[in-house]
Design a protein around this nucleic acid. Structure first.
Lengths: 161, 161
DNA sequence: AAGTGATCATAAGCTTGCTTATTATATCCA
DNA sequence: TGGATATAATAAGCAAGCTTATGATCACTT
């Protein structure tokens, strides 16, 4: 129980503290390439799945479409990616890497490894793998917790509205 | 190597995605108490170490003093904490919980456990404990990586400035 | 004692998240 | 065919991070 309560006391806020540190670190390093960490994450995801709709990409990135829209604006301004209209649905815009975007990702490929290696220093590859798996598990847990609490909310509103 | 490269591909951005999800979740739940997750984190830290200087608290929270200043403004507006001038150093303000802040934390004590338990569902207490330890390790790694890269920066500037 | 440099809190302005609302377009059903 | 509902992208405005700069105070050196 001591063990449980210690986790209980710390997990929620510790993750936030780590995130802030990691953000400062990654932004500082990425800035040498004229890009921010947030933009880089989008660019990397576009590379992995070109031709996606913005809404699909937003879901993959766990962010709201409007947040993504503004990041895409910046990536387009820099000519790293482009929006192309969808032939069969005129609401949709699909995202494609441009040549300079591909080149940038090439130049940055070593940086991600370096940042990750520095962050995970002293953690064995096996532990790192387990850690990542656990983070994915937690992501799923939180995603479904949000949906559940949203559903409860809707039910209450229906009952009292 | 497969294992290493899979971590390499994902750790940096996965943590950001999890953070965003967790933020949405915690903010939504905390809002029932009229407080945000960020403000809650500050309030909880003040409870644990009353009488701290703002600058010390900012360091504990891994955030910049100005970021903290504005969160503290809100906590003071709500009368949950107060700033008291230091007797021996007139620059310093020390932070103390007020009665209603203590009451609020009491009311919210169950929520943190609930959020953490939901997030860590399916992860054994032993694994959760190891996970938290690893997050702390990574925090230290990143903190020192930032300092190192800052030092390199300063060295370069000195050399070329 | 006085000046130089550090430290504390804060201000101004930017980024990247969010929520809520708007506009255009699709889809569905009656 | 047409009206209600849903979906895609964007806009406006707020929250909470950041950097850089400022004013007040302190500490140290001379």
């Amino acid at each position: 129980m001591t063990r449980g309560s210690s986790v209980d006391q710390n997990f929620l806020f510790t993750l936030g503290e780590l995130y802030r540190l990691l953000r400062v670190y990654a932004d500082k390093e990425a800035s040498r390439f004229g890009i921010t960490r947030a933009q880089w994450a989008v660019l990397a995801k576009v590379e992995r799945s070109e031709g996606m709709k913005q809404s699909e990409l937003a879901e993959l990135l766990e962010m709201q479409p409007i947040t993504l829209t503004r990041l895409i604006d910046k990536l387009c301004d820099n000519d790293w990616i482009e929006r192309r209209s969808d032939a069969s649905d005129r609401r949709v815009k699909r995202l494609y890497l441009k040549k300079s975007g591909r080149q940038l990702l090439g130049k940055m490929s070593g940086l991600k490894s370096e940042l990750t290696a520095n962050a995970l220093d002293g953690i064995t590859p096996a532990d790192a793998h387990r850690l990542l798996t656990q983070l994915e598990t937690i992501k799923e847990n939180v995603r479904s917790a949000i949906q559940t609490s949203g559903a409860e909310q809707a039910r209450k509103e229906q009952r009292y509205g």
